[in-house]
Design a protein around this nucleic acid. Sequence first.
DNA 1: AAGTGGTCTAGACCACCAT
DNA 2: TGGTGGTCTAGACCACTTT
Lengths: 244, 244
Amino acid sequence: MEKIQLTLVNGRPLYLQLAEAIKQYITSNTWQQGMMIPSETELSKTCDVSVGTVKKTLDMLAQEGYVIRHQGKGTFVAGPDFSKSFTRFFRYSDENATPLSEFGSKTLGKSVIQSDKTVAKALGLDVGEKVFYLHRLRTSQSLNLAVEKIYLPYERFRGIEHISLTDALLYPIYQTHFNTPVVWADEYLQAVIADTDTAHLLKIDTTTPVIGIERIAYTSRDVPIEFRQHIGRGDHFKYHIVVR
Amino acid sequence: MEKIQLTLVNGRPLYLQLAEAIKQYITSNTWQQGMMIPSETELSKTCDVSVGTVKKTLDMLAQEGYVIRHQGKGTFVAGPDFSKSFTRFFRYSDENATPLSEFGSKTLGKSVIQSDKTVAKALGLDVGEKVFYLHRLRTSQSLNLAVEKIYLPYERFRGIEHISLTDALLYPIYQTHFNTPVVWADEYLQAVIADTDTAHLLKIDTTTPVIGIERIAYTSRDVPIEFRQHIGRGDHFKYHIVVR
DNA sequence: AAGTGGTCTAGACCACCAT
DNA sequence: TGGTGGTCTAGACCACTTT
């Protein structure tokens, strides 16, 4: 399944050269998500470096999230880890800090439209090029938590308007129906004010604080394939980090 | 400067046991910030493990931010890295995305007050215990970017009200004057509405979106020593992450 | 039993820093 | 020059998974 790798002994450390080569295979989708990559001993032979060096490379790539290692099974190409996403941090911030559960989503509308300036810029299109537009409401029990607006380049996702997207995860659909895996994503978080439509959907008024998250998801070769705007109720969002 | 370390061969890997021991020295402030820790060869001898294992331990601790390694010099205890803090991500979000520069701060007031419920909880005090309160305005050129409210347990920081804090970094003062280094910190980010005082200081009205960041800073043995509330203008805040 | 990654060793040589 | 971390090797043994 894989070719020989040429790794020369110049100034650059071998384990970094090997890491770059493997990253290249992954980000170009030559080695696809979930696939097992060659074993340590095999890489050691084909690259003509010691097993210890290969171990160092793979440990580093695992640390960086490119691969997952399983003792006794092998090393596998990882997908992006959206447990690190901003949108996974919606929680109760009430006195009783019980986390939310049973998330659902309701489709508010879907259509093929012309991209405006913002969407075109995010997706690397010209203004006016066709995009598929999906409008969703994210809920938890009876709470309306967030409104999502999702834009896809229609060229690549032709026919997606005929696929049922209710309660489905979108990224597996991108992969299976359109051969377009999400390899990584960019996210921006801001405090914003909700437009009146969104405020109404979230059952808040336009003075309630609201969190805006924008995500651009990329497939192989850093091609943008999804632009997502996520407007969430500020009173149910709390993001936490530890500084060390 | 350092004692012998006992590391037994039971189920737990040696490099993890060694890492825990070293973390213990650091978080208990036995090994202080900036101090050089024993060299690889020295640790190797005193702990009776190979140099390779020590290397693995120290590489991991460097990755986790506990130590900094310098070729030819040694391995040193690191302080918390506030470049990872939420408060370091204030930037222009205008079309011309030029970053802000020349930050300043202006003291609005300082006093010794009784802690309310929120402050007491954050600092692990009883309600009513004395805290030092510092009210600051963070600026960039002519822009008022954020308002900070800082609370310190007065027991530990007795006399701080007589120290000049204008344009000074606080954490070095905690360390030098009160023997209280900040070892790590916890941060929470939320969308909030500014109270009228804060809104006035930021020259915004109470409908403008605002980001609230709360930080609890800890010294050795996980003792909380600072509670900081940071209210920043939402239109100048943009936080970015990459999901892989 | 064969193959995988996880741990650990005992070296070697190098680049960098202080003296 | 001696000490430090950075890279790399060639093994050994173990734990886990699959066949």
